[in-house]
Nucleic acid binder design. Structure first.
Length: 284
DNA sequence: GCCCAGGTATAAA
DNA sequence: TTTATACATGGG
């Protein structure tokens, strides 16, 4: 028996497929057809994970699990309690949670999430994944090979990315987003954008600071706060979510969902992908 | 070929 | 303050 065994039920459940393929992280690939085995990279760390009948098996050392993956998967938070609070708020939320009760909000690297969601604008999820993979191949540091020999690359640091040019990044095929990405990296690298301040500042301060970056509007800023800084009060609103709020929660604002609004949003986003018809405007 | 994508910047109403 | 359009490009 190899790998670290972890019982996710103790922390409110964790389903790999629901968590790794729900549009919050873009560097994970399924290794089977059922979404039970995955490989992926966070920062400069690669891992393979398998969902087994009674546990999760992390193929890594104890130390890596403790220092990297336990925090990354937010395994010390009580999602059972968080879900129970959300269920009590509204029956629609109760239904949405039932469709993907194993979603958790990952603790991703702030700069990596910032870049990912700058690249996300007006793109579908498969394309976002492709752009990020090509970006890492171009200027990410090599971190070894996976089990089948594929070379692996870390996400580039802000300093490294800041030294790239539109020409060197052309193979990423990011279109008009290339300039936004380079500019963002240079602002972080120079200190003009201070990630530590954004981490600890008030929600509105951090929103404003992020939106000084070209290519970061209200939606992307909210995604960066939620996924990059684990600010669970943040609530990304794309066209689907606006529609959901209009049709399913008329008159309600994101504050209705409370301190874990971002988690509620993630359940609703997944629900909207499973049942798009429910999120259409009312007929007639 | 066509449509649209986890939007944003910009101009116009 | 709200509404329209261009933006680069690929996945389906």
């Amino acid at each position: 028996m190899t790998g670290i065994h972890y019982q996710p039920e103790a922390a409110g459940g964790l389903q790999l497929g629901e968590t790794l393929d729900c549009g919050q992280a873009f560097r994970w690939q399924p290794l089977d057809n059922q979404g039970l085995a995955w490989e992926g990279i966070a920062g400069r760390h690669y891992i393979k994970i398998r969902q087994e009948s009674d546990c999760l098996r992390f193929f890594c050392t104890e130390e890596e699990f403790r220092q990297i993956w336990r925090p990354y998967f937010d395994l010390d938070a009580d999602y059972g309690a968080m879900k129970e609070n959300l269920r009590k708020l509204d029956p629609i939320l109760e239904t949405a949670i039932a469709y993907a009760p194993g979603i958790r909000l990952l603790r991703q690297d702030p700069f990596e999430a910032m870049c990912a969601f700058i690249l996300s604008s007006n793109c579908n999820i498969p394309r976002i994944k492709g752009m990020i993979q090509r970006l890492c191949q171009i200027c990410g540091e090599p971190i070894g090979r996976n089990f089948d020999g594929t070379e692996l690359f870390a996400f580039p640091t802000a300093d490294t990315l800041a030294r790239q040019t539109p020409e060197s990044l052309a193979p990423v095929r990011a279109g008009f987003r290339t300039g936004y990405l380079l500019n963002a990296a240079r602002m972080v690298s120079s200190g003009q954008v201070n990630l530590a301040e954004i981490h600890s500042g008030s929600l509105n301060f951090s929103r404003a600071a992020l939106q000084t970056i070209r290519g970061v509007g209200p939606k992307v800023a909210e995604c960066i706060l939620l996924y990059g800084f684990h600010r669970l009060e943040a609530f990304p609103m794309d066209v689907w979510m606006k529609r959901a709020m209009d049709t399913l929660f008329p008159g309600k604002t994101p504050e209705f969902f409370g301190a874990d609004a971002g988690l509620a949003q993630q359940y609703l986003f997944h629900y909207s992908r499973m049942h798009p018809e429910l999120f259409q405007p009312a007929a007639g």
